[in-house]
């Protein structure tokens, strides 16, 4: 599945990237105009030279303008105009859930970003689901058979999103009606509104929807038992979550931070922290998704 990204890049790059032999560990493929190609992952980083062999980044294949523009054309199905919304937010989601960050010359119109011209860099982030990544945490989510509203606190890169996806999948398959408010299309990696990753049998996804509005929409129409969303940060998100929890819906949400004390400072927490029943703090100590601390209120 990870390898499916090959058909989304320029033909020339397909040949070069064929040298990757550890697809399972690759996290990012970085294309920067006139600079070396970089493959990143848990192993660190490497490049691929002109003899299609792995090498130091400094000796790596130099990405040309042709490579980038062809890749963009293929990714956009030759229809750049169809992606304006996505480009404005800085990334595209591809058919298999891979996400591509875009940088270049930003065109403004009345102070708002209108488009990106002369694309100079692409960061292809490979989507992968790690089934069972939530196995450890699943036990913590219940107290005497009752699901607890949980706040997952973690610094970036500790596997929050992967974890939330697996929680959604497992709980949904256990019989919970789950709604995912996927503002940044990261949890379910929707393409044309349809989840590309397994989020469970009873899961509905509001893709690209602002969290506060999405939570209200879900409450109105989808009768969720559990709402999952990531990276709350705005006071309005806190209010909407509080509204959901008051009406008896459980919430599992993540936010950036190192500890509960750190998170407590934030404005949105004041709106809803008392309604969460527990907080779980993650770190990267023993690989992504290490549970550091479980704090139960109840």
């Amino acid at each position: 599945m990870v390898k499916s990204v090959l058909k989304e890049v320029a033909p020339r790059l397909r040949e070069v990237l064929a040298a990757i032999d550890n697809w399972e560990q690759v996290e990012e493929i970085r294309l920067r105009l006139n600079r070396p190609l970089v493959i990143k992952g848990r192993f660190g980083e490497y490049g691929i030279n002109y003899f299609m062999q792995k090498c130091q980044v400094i000796d790596s294949y130099i990405v040309t303008n042709e490579d980038i523009s062809r890749t963009i054309q293929i990714m956009s199905k030759n229809s750049w105009y169809a992606l304006e919304e996505e480009v404005r937010s800085g990334y595209l989601t591809l058919e298999n859930g891979h996400r591509v960050g875009i940088v270049g010359k930003v065109i403004l119109e009345q102070g708002r970003i209108k488009n990106i011209k002369h694309v100079s860099g692409l960061n292809i982030r490979l989507a992968r689901e790690i089934r069972g990544s939530a196995n450890q945490i699943m036990r913590q989510l219940f107290l005497q058979g009752e699901l607890l509203s949980t706040l997952i606190i973690s610094p970036p890169g500790c596997g929050k999103t992967t974890l939330l996806r697996d929680i959604a999948r497992q709980l949904s398959n256990q019989g919970f009606n789950v709604v995912i408010i996927d503002e940044r299309s990261e949890i379910a990696a929707c393409y044309h509104g349809c989840p590309q990753l397994d989020v469970g049998l009873r899961t509905d996804v509001l893709d690209g929807c602002p969290k506060a509005e999405g939570i209200t929409m879900a409450l109105r129409g989808m009768s969720p038992q559990l709402i999952i969303t990531d990276e709350i940060g705005h006071p309005a998100d806190g209010l909407a979550l509080a509204e959901a929890m008051k009406s008896g819906v459980k919430v599992i949400s993540s936010c950036h931070g190192d500890s509960l004390a750190d998170v407590r400072q934030r404005q949105w927490v004041k709106e809803c922290s008392s309604l969460f029943q527990q907080a779980i703090v993650l770190s990267r100590r023993n690989g992504p998704g290490t549970i550091e601390q479980v704090l139960k209120w109840k």
């Binding site: 054309q73 956009s76 030759n78 229809s79 750049w80 105009y81 209108k114």
Partner: peptide, 10 residues
């Protein structure tokens, strides 16, 4: 030019 620019331009 088809497909290469934003919708207005197309």
């Amino acid at each position: 030019v088809l497909g290469q620019s934003d919708a207005d331009d197309q």
